[in-house]
């Protein structure tokens, strides 16, 4: 791990990200928070529907807003990759970062499971009909996972190893 992180930090790309492209850092942070809002907002909306709120909106109709979450996730994956390449020591040895990555993997696997296994069942639900337990489990897991992504992401600067280049 140490060898990889050292190699990454010394690559020309990583160096360029720090200088002369240091202005990219605050720019990517702003984008990262914008992407966060798209993911958290859309997930909260769709998960609430999976839990049985807003029954008047059919699930496949509510799903029309999911592209907003995908756009937000793509923005955050890209900007997150920038942060990691520019300052790998800040993350690779930071337990909050590993918690965050784990939560992301759980959230994505959960969303993938819904897409592949469950979403087609949604078409059979009548207007105002109660949602099956499986939908409620997926919705709850999704909310918990995304809130963990946000929480551990926010903890990153406080848990970074000393001298690894973290700022708040």
């Amino acid at each position: 791990m140490g060898a990889f992180v050292t190699w990454l930090r010394d690559t020309p790309l990583s160096q360029a990200f720090r200088v002369p492209l240091e202005w990219l850092w605050p720019a990517c942070e702003s984008l990262h928070f914008l992407g966060l809002a798209l993911v958290i907002g859309t997930a909260a909306f769709f998960d609430a529907r999976l839990l049985g709120f807003m029954k008047r909106i059919p699930i496949r109709t509510a799903a029309q807003f999911l592209p907003l979450a995908r756009v937000g996730f793509a923005i955050n994956l890209t900007t997150g990759l920038y942060f990691f390449i520019a300052s790998p020591f800040q993350y690779a040895f930071n337990v909050a970062w590993w918690y965050k990555v784990t939560a992301i993997l759980i959230a994505v696997a959960n969303a993938g499971f819904f897409e592949i296994m469950l979403r087609s069942n949604a078409a059979g639900l009548g207007d105002g009909e109660d949602v099956p337990l499986s939908f409620k489990i997926v919705g709850t897991l999704s909310m918990v996972a995304w809130v963990n992504v946000l929480f551990w992401g926010r903890m990153l600067p406080f848990w970074a190893p000393p001298g690894s280049g973290a700022d708040l």
Binding site: L38, I40, A44, F45, F65
Partner: peptide, 9 residues
């Protein structure tokens, strides 16, 4: 996330 996310929707 809630404020801007709902607004975005």
């Amino acid at each position: 996330g809630l404020v801007v996310g709902m607004s975005a929707i």
